[in-house]
């Protein structure tokens, strides 16, 4: 029988789980290094969402601004970005885009850092850049590689959801009453000033329903993270839940995937509920004092 590398157990009595009572066994089981990785991955997912949401919003803002630009190529670019990325299922995008993105970065660095490199970058199937251009550098610590992978995942998610956000914001910009813009013009504002001082501040209330919907969709897209090489909660739930034979673990069990997925289900439902409540409050705040039906009914309720 092979020896196993035993992780450092949290509880001292965990050294030989086969002798333990049920409760203690479960206590030991749920605190193995592997379970710790699962708990950490919840943090990873939350962190990803926290970074992706504002980044995607920025992409969306840029896309929407480009799509209504008066400069034709820029407008085409903005509209093509929105149309193409929205038209493609996110999985299909995730399956090849990360590798492409990584290669694009490395290629650019390669051109800058190794101008006198004489070999082709594509050698058959291989993608070879000079060692200095590698991202991260070959000798970088594992956490740097993981952070870089995480960064690529954030970027990919942001590009995909940025297109949806761009669509929402584009619509919201058009929903701002035209009279407001005409008034701004009448005051002698340049188009740029009108955009910054009148259009943008007013569009948020129109954009919020669409953006909150998008946030919900984003939450539910996180199980696809493992496609991007990030070890997320679904990866660990699958790994931990699969049946284990006693040869390879101190904690053999049958197919427990159902329980792990059930825990994920509860997590997602709670997270959705909390988001709903927060977004509802935000909507109430944003509509306050606005000349919309919602704002009007708030005023009446207060009176």
């Amino acid at each position: 029988m092979p020896t196993r590398a035993r992780g450092t157990a949290i509880f001292s009595f965990c050294t030989d789980p086969s002798t333990l009572s049920d409760a203690a066994w479960l206590g030991c089981y749920l605190t193995t290094g592997k379970h710790m990785a699962l708990y950490w991955s919840f943090g990873t997912v939350l962190l990803l969402l926290a970074i992706t949401a504002p980044t995607a919003l920025a992409f969306g803002f840029g896309g929407a601004a480009a799509a209504r630009s008066r400069f034709l190529p820029l407008r085409w670019f903005g509209q093509a970005y929105i149309a193409i990325v929205r038209g493609v299922p996110d999985i299909a995008f995730f399956l090849f885009f990360v590798i492409a993105l990584d290669q694009a970065f490395e290629y650019i660095r390669h051109r800058i850092k190794c101008p006198d490199w004489d070999q082709p970058v594509r050698q058959g199937n291989d993608f070879v850049v000079c060692a200095e251009a590698k991202l991260p550098l070959g000798n970088a610590a594992q956490w740097i590689h993981e952070t870089y992978g995480f960064f690529l995942a954030v970027l990919t998610f942001s590009i995909v959801f940025g297109a949806f956000a761009a669509n929402v914001l584009y619509g919201a910009m058009r929903a701002v009453p035209h009279a407001q813009l005409e008034t701004a013009e009448a005051y002698g504002m340049t188009p740029r000033q009108t955009f910054r001082r009148v259009l943008v501040p007013q569009m948020w209330v129109y954009a919020l329903p669409g953006l909150s919907n998008l946030w919900m969709v984003l939450i539910k897209a996180t199980p696809l993270l493992f496609l991007l090489g990030v070890e997320d909660i679904v990866y660990w739930a699958r790994e931990l839940g699969g049946s284990k034979t006693p040869r390879f673990t101190d904690y053999p069990h049958g197919d427990w995937r159902m329980w792990y997925f059930f825990a994920l289900l509860v997590f997602y439902l709670c997270f959705t509920r909390v988001s709903e409540i927060v977004l509802e409050r935000l909507m109430v705040k944003l509509t306050y004092g606005q000349a919309t039906l919602g704002g009007e009914s708030q005023r009446k309720a207060a009176a």
Binding site: R4, A5, R6, G7, G33, K34, A37, G242, R247, F248
Partner: peptide, 15 residues
């Protein structure tokens, strides 16, 4: 994910 060739052990490392 392919014991005995390679799998993740209890500690979360490749084994």
């Amino acid at each position: 994910a392919y014991p005995p060739y390679n799998f993740i052990n209890d500690a979360g490392d490749v084994d």
